[in-house]
Structure formats: C-alpha cells, structure tokens
Design a protein around this nucleic acid. Sequence first.
DNA 1: CGTGATGCATCTATGGATGCATCTATGCCT
DNA 2: AGGCATAGATGCATCCATAGATGCATCACG
Lengths: 224, 224
Amino acid sequence: MAASAARAIVEQRHEAGALITEADIAATHGASRTPAREAMLQLESWGLVRLIPKKGAVVAPVRTRERRDLLAVRTLFETDAVEAVARGDADLAALTTDLERQLDRQRRAVADADPLAFAGADCAFHGCIVRAGGNDVVVALLETLGPRLARLTYDVALESPGRLPTLLHEHEQLADTARAGDAAGFAALVRRHVAAGHFSPAESPASDPASDGRRGERPAAGRA
Amino acid sequence: MAASAARAIVEQRHEAGALITEADIAATHGASRTPAREAMLQLESWGLVRLIPKKGAVVAPVRTRERRDLLAVRTLFETDAVEAVARGDADLAALTTDLERQLDRQRRAVADADPLAFAGADCAFHGCIVRAGGNDVVVALLETLGPRLARLTYDVALESPGRLPTLLHEHEQLADTARAGDAAGFAALVRRHVAAGHFSPAESPASDPASDGRRGERPAAGRA
DNA sequence: CGTGATGCATCTATGGATGCATCTATGCCT
DNA sequence: AGGCATAGATGCATCCATAGATGCATCACG
C-alpha cells in the first residue's frame, strides 16, 4: 500500500505541493484509515512527503540541493563498493550477471521508449553495484533512498528521453569499470555520469524554479 | 514515545530476544495502542526490533556482522565529510566549537564514570564530523542509524569502562585531524579507533556468542 | 459610503481510543 | 502422542476529541 502510494508520487501523478490525506489513500485502496496512516508514515520516512500536523501530507518538491545530496550519497556508496571489488571482497560472477541483467532491462526500455521502465532499471543497476560492496547496512540505507532516487531518474527520463541511449552507454562503461575493480576510474565516470544526467547546463540550478534559495555556502558533497 | 522505548533497548533494559508487545509500550506510557503501534514501527525502522506478524516485536541481537557494517558506514560518512573539510567546504568555526562541546561532554562523562552519558556524547561527536560534510541526506541517514550506533557504543562503555579515557584521547586526536582536513590521516585514525574500540582481540568475533554464523566471504567494508 | 480588519462559526483532517476478527502458540485432556 | 480449546497479540475498522484553516459577517475607520 505504501509502495503503491509511493509509485503515485514517483510517477508524478501528484504534483509537488499537493495535499494527500489519509482518507485519499484509504479510499483508493479500499481500506480503512489505519493502514493508510501507516503508509503516510512510510512516505514521510522515504522523504516523499512532509507531514504537517493536523493538516495532511504535502508531496515534497525536489530541490536541487536535495538532488545533489542524494546523488552524492549514491556515488559515495557505489565508489566504496567498487573499492571492495578492487580488494577482491565481492562475488564477481554474481555482480557480472546482475549488471548484465539490468543493462538488458535498460536496453529494452530504451527500445520501447519507456521512461518508467528505464528509471526502474537504472535504480536496480546502481543498486547492484552497491550490493557488491557487501555491506548490508549500506544496502538497507540505499533502499530507503530508493523512491527518492527513482523520482530523480524518472524526472530525467521523462524530460529528456533523448538522453536515455547516452545514459545506457555510460552505464555500460560503469559496469565494465566496476567489474574491473577500477575504483578511481569508476569514481571519475560516475561523477561525470551524474553531472551530465542530472545537472546538465541546459537546466542550470540557478534557473531551476524548484531550487531552494538557501545560502550557497557549501559546494557539492562527495569526493573532490 | 518511540524515543523512550528506543532508550530502553539501547540501555539494555530489555535483553536481546525479548518480546515486546504493543500493550507493554502502551501501558508503560499510559497511552493507548495506536501510539504504541507507531512506536513499534519506528523501533523496527531503527533496526532495534524485528516485527513478527501476529506475535510481537523481538529486540534484535547485535550481530558482529551488523556491528562491522554499521561502523563501516559511519566511517565512510565521516571520511567523506573530512574530505569536504579538506576542500574548504565546511564551516570550520562551527565544527571546532561543536567538537569541543562534545569532547567536554565526554570528559565529564569519564570523570563521572557515566557510560550512558559517554555513549551519547560519542554519537554526538561523530555526528558533528558527519554534519560538517554538509550533506543533509547523509546527516539524515546517520540519524536513522543513531540508536543502533548508540547501542554499540553503550555496550563498549558498559563492558569496558576502563577504555573510556583511551576513547576520549582518540577522539581528541580525531578532532584535530578532522579540523585540519587531513582526510587520509583521519581515515587511518578512525579505522584504528573503531577496531580498537569495537573489535578488540579481547572479544574476538569468533568467540562472540552473538556472532552470526554466516559465510565469512566478505571481510570488512570501508576503505582498503 | 466604501474598505479593511477582526472575531466567530464551521469544516476538514489528524491524533487517539476501543471493539472485533484473525491467527498463533501453548497447555491440557483424552 | 495427538488433537482441541483457550489465551494472547496483532491487524483493521470505527468512533470521539481537538487543532488548524477557511469563509463570512460584522464593525471600525477613513
């Protein structure tokens, strides 16, 4: 139920700032308010909505600051995982087959021009790499970020479907570097991948209406 | 309410494997089952209990595998934050005063031989460093791990109170290195700090009764 | 006389409490 | 030993109280 409500937000069936009520969720699922309430709490823990006491849940806008931070975290996790691969602390065979499966999903999604499928495969792809690091806590943390990351990827896939083949190509390179355990090369690639995919000059953060106007004290987190 | 129940687990007022029921929490707080239910969900999201359908919540044991993973994540976050400090992307003055405040708390806790206070200050100390990285998502993730990390630290403080002065000294060194933005030095120190504090040879993982018997395929995650 | 502010009524949505059904485990009886 | 009954606990639905917001009517003032 929470997952279904999350999908509704990820797929932008609610616009940012919209108010969602327990009754809404309960009604669309034909259930009562108690499970709906649980779902709302989940949505908030996933960072998809902000709960306002006695008022409801507003779907959180995607701020460029948050986008930067989210992707920096994923990059951090991935890079750490590839370092584990480099140390030989990973099941290379499993990683290889998993990556290939997700690349196949992406190829199909590109062929079908299905941005939602691509976004799902993208998340799973990066999840594979993180999973190779073998740290269950990291994997669990990434899963809690999953819906938010899916939202970002879905946004990109929706707004610039022409970029999907490029993303796919970058993913293929990432997969090769990850399998090779080339941590430094992977870090450089993934940083370029993120910058090109989510922070292209075409949509400069300064002109992004969803941008938060907070002090620009701190540039991007993540490796130098 | 959830926080109070979490404290009860962190402070080991429930032993691992014990069954907690909604009615228990409701009764100890003089509330009804609805908020108690919420608290149970929080406890599960914090990884302190495992929810068993139609049965109750059992307080999760601390497995050495989980301990390793948790501390690896904290180390990863801290090291990344110190790299941000090295890049100059941090408010050094705030970091300095925050660290000093937490070190003071620790000194008082050592003087008072108060392991609980020390554990709290320890978590806050490491939290300061992570916060300096300026990534709000990382800070939020660390907060969700807070109770679990507090449990680990509290365990150490309880079982080896004689180690507290050593931990304090290591924290002072860590603070200096972090302020200096010496990422490599910090990484080395924090790794030794974690190994000495949580994986001392005195309590070898192999002989730890709480150890999980899973395949030892993958050594520690975290930097090589 | 018109305009804006203020106070009240109402309405909505949450937050909490409780009743009922279901499911599990345990203990007793045969 | 095996099956049945019972007790306990969750899971869900419904009900009650309350807080915040909104809209309207009224009143004060220019």
